[in-house]
């Protein structure tokens, strides 16, 4: 509970920072004006540009943090992340295809395509998971699925009609929450909420899987159902994230590890704190993307990868303990 309270406070602080700071520096007077009159130009910057963007980053971060914790618990692997089974690759591929087909301008088409791509891959993985219990087998299938998704995306690039389309796809794939406004959030909330509910439903099963498939199967929990719930839940969360912000790496990998020690390594109790940690991480990453003075604003996926890669190495270092055991 103390951990949750601490994380909620940290998230509130990160969110406040992400509203207060950005590309445009405001004077104290402008802050005062924004607070007294949200309709004023400074108020617009804070509440109509930065706030929805920050909320979007927090939401996507939370979804990825939760999905990452679920995948790590399900696959019993500290290096698993939301995209490990190919879900984000297929979401990205579907979105790339939608852009190429000229659907990018149609409201919600891109988002729907990404979500469908994720669900398609998630469905394939769920069918495979019902047949093969071993996490290693599932990971191998996932790698194949991800590689195929990546290859198809490359094919879309290859056949893309114009350099403009290619640039559009590339930029989208790198992930960003720039220019997101409040109206973008509700369509993503439904799949995310459903995904989160499925993941929390599966939490007990993830904890039981700590001792392996057979102990879990003998625990009396409906493991077959919980396993599918976890997979579909994680796919919904990941797909909705990609539909909202493109492909963003490392948050789903790192967030569970940041909180795991504080919950005694319990995979079930890792879920909610991991979602909060993911929200904090991505909110701060998006803030960095905005305030780092570069000619062209840094893409969110680039920032998380730049800061995430060293963290990934650290995580691998620490996780090696469980492989030796």
């Amino acid at each position: 509970m103390r951990l949750a309270a601490l994380l909620v406070l940290a998230l509130a602080a990160a969110f406040a920072l992400s509203i207060a700071f950005g590309e445009t520096m405001l004077s104290l007077g402008q802050y005062a004006q924004a607070l007294s009159d949200p309709g004023s130009p400074p108020g617009e910057i804070l509440f109509a540009i930065r706030a929805p963007r920050g909320a979007c980053a927090a939401l996507v971060g939370a979804a990825l943090g939760l999905a990452g914790a679920v995948m790590q618990g399900l696959l019993r692997n500290p290096l698993a992340e939301p995209g490990v089974l190919g879900v984000s690759a297929w979401a990205g591929c579907a979105a790339a295809l939608a852009i190429t087909l000229g659907l990018g301008a149609m409201a919600g088409a891109l988002e729907t395509a990404a979500l469908l791509g994720a669900l398609g891959a998630g469905g394939v993985v769920a069918v495979i998971a019902a047949r093969f219990r071993e996490p290693e087998t599932l990971i191998l299938f996932g790698i194949a699925l991800a590689a195929l998704g990546g290859a198809l995306t490359a094919l879309v690039f290859n056949l893309s009609p114009s350099p403009v389309t290619t640039a559009e796809i590339l930029s989208w794939l790198q992930g960003s929450v720039a220019n997101r406004d409040w109206s973008d959030l509700p369509p993503a909330l439904a799949p995310m909420g459903l995904g989160a509910a499925l993941c929390l439903y599966a939490a007990e099963g993830l904890r039981m899987l700590t001792l392996g498939d057979e102990s879990a199967a003998m625990s009396g929990l409906p493991m077959a159902r919980l396993r599918v719930a976890a997979l579909v839940g994680a796919a919904l969360l990941t797909g909705a994230s990609v539909s909202l912000a493109g492909v963003i790496g490392f948050v789903g990998l790192a967030a569970p590890h940041l909180v795991r020690g504080a919950v005694s390594d319990d995979p079930a109790r890792t879920l909610a704190p991991s979602a909060l940690a993911g929200a904090i991480l991505l909110t701060l990453a998006d803030l960095l993307a905005r305030v780092i003075p570069t000619e062209e604003e840094l893409r969110l996926g680039v920032v998380t990868a730049l800061f995430g890669a060293p963290l990934f190495a650290l995580v691998a270092w620490r996780a090696s303990r469980s492989w030796r055991a």
Binding site: N77, L209, T210, E214, A217, M218, G220, D266
Partner: peptide, 23 residues
């Protein structure tokens, strides 16, 4: 049912791998 089976029997597999460092 899964629950009834768990009530009637418990199993300790030979494999002693534990995925997470739980207390």
């Amino acid at each position: 049912s899964d629950a009834r089976r768990a009530f009637l029997a418990a199993y300790l597999p030979q494999e002693r791998r534990v995925a997470w460092n739980m207390p």
